[in-house]
């Protein structure tokens, strides 16, 4: 399978990339690792006339701790995030989930920013960032703005980023003592989750996020509220399907996905010490 014809640009600066996006708007797509975009282009589900390769904007590839946050550059590859000492120490859920995406080859190429902007509700990392209460920093012609992860995922494969903007950084609160757990069910190890759950437990509260039970990754608000009110893992997990809108496909019916949400959230909560 070969993508449709497109023009390829590899700007040497962030400003150069933003200028191309401003000029070409909807017709342009940002390419980082390419492991979400290229499969779509090969299937001709995406046909950008211009591909802007930002993978060599190395200024956007980093993991560092700043002002109580772990800050990850948008083009940081999953493998580099999973093996980052900073991430492993201060955002262990994020580092772990980065190491669970796809398979080693995918993790050598795919990037955190690409995974988030792609907006696939079946992806692992959006749920992790959501559970952690993350913030996304996007840059456009008028400068930078930040978007709460809860506002970022708008609909199925749709995120709150304009065609002339680019995701540049992801921030999650630093928490070396975090208790966390991540559960996903797949038929084959490398597959997308049929359903998954990410849990983080810290002094400021509990974050529970679900994978692939709605058109967007979802915070399990009912579970979080029950835990805050003193419920145990079993009781809280029974609420995990509230607010979900699971799809039906060859892997699972909506009913089975709701069942999985309850089971996986219970397991995750127990592993996180509830």
């Amino acid at each position: 399978m070969i993508p449709d014809v497109f023009a390829y640009e590899r700007p040497e600066t962030r400003e150069g990339a933003l200028a191309l996006l401003a000029e070409h708007g909807d017709e342009a797509k940002v390419l980082a690792g390419g492991h979400s975009l290229l499969p779509l282009m090969k299937l001709r589900l995406a046909r950008p006339s211009l591909v802007v390769d930002v993978a060599r904007l190395y200024e956007l590839s980093y993991v560092r701790e700043e002002d109580g946050f772990v800050c990850v550059g948008a083009t940081t590859r999953h493998h580099d995030l999973a093996t980052s000492d900073v991430a492993r120490a201060s955002a262990p859920l994020l580092a772990h989930v980065a190491g669970q995406v796809g398979d080693p080859q995918v993790r050598h190429r795919g990037t955190l920013g690409g995974s988030l902007v792609h907006g696939d509700p079946a992806s692992d990392l959006p749920a992790a960032v959501l559970a952690l209460g993350g913030t996304l920093v996007v840059e456009g012609p008028s400068g930078r703005r930040t978007i709460d992860a809860r506002e970022f995922f708008v609909s199925f494969f749709e995120v709150a980023i304009a065609p002339d903007e680019m995701l540049v950084e992801i921030r999650v609160p630093s928490n070396p003592g975090e208790q966390w757990a991540f559960e996903k069910l797949t038929k084959r190890a490398q597959d997308w989750a049929i359903v998954g759950a990410a849990v983080t437990r810290r002094a400021s509260g509990v974050g529970v996020a679900l994978i692939n039970v709605a058109p967007v990754p979802l915070r399990a608000a009912a579970v979080e509220e029950a835990l805050a009110a003193g419920a145990g893992a079993d009781e809280a997990a029974q609420l995990a399907a509230e607010g979900t809108d699971p799809s039906s496909d060859f892997n699972a019916s909506p009913e089975y996905r709701r069942h999985l949400a309850r089971v996986l959230v219970r397991r995750a909560l127990q592993k996180a010490g509830f």
Binding site: G34, H79, D103, P104, H108, Q190
Partner: peptide, 29 residues
């Protein structure tokens, strides 16, 4: 498979394994 699944097309870019059906030649320039 030509869909990033099977790994038959795995090669190394700068020492790291990648699936070459999901990388543009231009990206490896």
């Amino acid at each position: 498979c030509d869909t990033t699944s099977c790994g038959a097309c795995t090669v190394l870019i700068d020492g790291q394994s990648v699936k070459s059906c999901t990388v543009l030649a231009a990206q490896a320039d």
